[in-house]
Amino acid sequence: MNSRLRKVHKYSWLLLLIIIPLIMFFSMKNLMIFESTNKTDINLNFSRNIPDRDFENDLIKVAFYPKNIEIILKTTLKNPSSTIYTVDDNNKKQKVIGQLTTAGIYFFDINDIPKNIALYDDIKDVLITKTNF
């Protein structure tokens, strides 16, 4: 390495010395580090404040936006398969939206806001849960 590269190294790390602690501080300042170990529960909030419609039960929180559906799965599902469908008034499956697996936040793009959605285990052929609007 020549002296110019050594200087680039030095100033890169001096910059990181400032930037990385700032990232760490601001990302941790609201975390309850020693109290919470798993936030995959009811405390998760929607990413946007005002959905067109929203729904919540013991398993899911659902927000409909004009072009997306945001689903918060509160706990990891034990079902071998879990597919989200739009459903009609008679709970009949219409269109596949996507799949859920582990607890967390999922986003799916949609063209039209469905009346309701349902989560089906297609292997066992059972309804896991659905929205009720």
């Binding site: 990385i20 990232i23 760490m24 990302s27 941790m28 975390l31 309850m32 580090i33 020693f34 919470s36 170990t37 798993n38 936030k39 995959t40 967390g104």
Partner: peptide, 15 residues
């Protein structure tokens, strides 16, 4: 670092 602190650590916070 930002990916982990703003992602995984927001969901599961472990000392």
């Amino acid at each position: 670092i930002a990916h982990v602190f703003l992602g995984a650590f927001q969901q599961e916070t472990s000392p």
